[in-house]
Amino acid sequence: MSPLGARTLGRSPSEVALDLALRHATYLIFLAVILYFGIQSPAFLAPESLGNVVKQASFIGIAAIGMTFVLLTGGIDLSVGSVMYLAPLIAGFAMEAFGLGVPAGLVVAVCAGAVLGAINALFIVRFDVIPFIVTLATLFLFRGFGTWLTSSRQFDFAPEMRAFGLSSVLGIPTPILVFAVVALAAHVVLSRTPFGRQIYALGNDAEGARKAGVRVGVVKGSVYVVSSASAALAGFVLIAQIGRLDAAFGEGREFDVIAAAVLGGASLFGGVGSAWGAVIGATLIQTVKLGLVFAGVNLYLQPIMQGLIIFVAVLADSLRQRRIAISRRRHIRPSA
């Protein structure tokens, strides 16, 4: 039953080990990072600091889970940073205008995110413009629209908002709970539903998926809705912890989100990635950030470490792809 046992015949143990290491590079890095910081300062391994890591990772993590859907189809969504800003803002206005509670506001934010995603999907599927350009344009559009609504002033939410953000259920902070629910839901959708499996099929071979009867347009459009809705939720959850929304919120976050998803094993070429991976990717980045704080490294140097880790993970993936390509070369003669 082992998926590896029979498949690794005829290769030396060191080659098998290298394949394994390249395939699970992110996990190895994660392990190394935790061990390193744990030795540097044992306090880092205390439950509360680890809990803090997950809580802080939830923001990028939730959006990265949504981004994974898009990357799986071989697309990209650059507009998530602006959606994080605009969708919660719309929710804020709705809460103010209609006296909605925080849960209702959350629903409004997610719905607003879904609508923004549908705009991306419209241009990508219907007008056949490449995702990079569409989402680059909506990055500007969405943020511009939001600042037009606020006249680029800060937006203050009602105090209940902050109470929600800092609340906890059964001792688990709400952001972690939301993160967990989103991750679980995404995992189930991706791995257990026809829609999820068709996303993978589409990313592996779009033409093949079309031939096999998959409704490619619908699947392709849906992932942008998922991505934007997740970004909206991510923004809402973080804003709930802060209590206000300023005009620069979410700016440049699209890159953090993509980095987390890729670190979690999602490929920019589509077909590879998982919700679980996005969680790991986002958490790893946050672990490094916090670990470097514990280790007393200059604040400004932290991104360099992050960059280095992303680089190593992408490099490992590229090397793995190359090894696969070489091993797939056509063999004519029966090999011994």
């Binding site: 500007f140 559009l141 511009g144 629209f145 037009w148």
Partner: peptide, 11 residues
């Protein structure tokens, strides 16, 4: 404002 400009740029 600079943000409205962004919006037009996007369009």
């Amino acid at each position: 404002s600079s943000f409205q400009i962004d919006m037009v740029k996007g369009g």
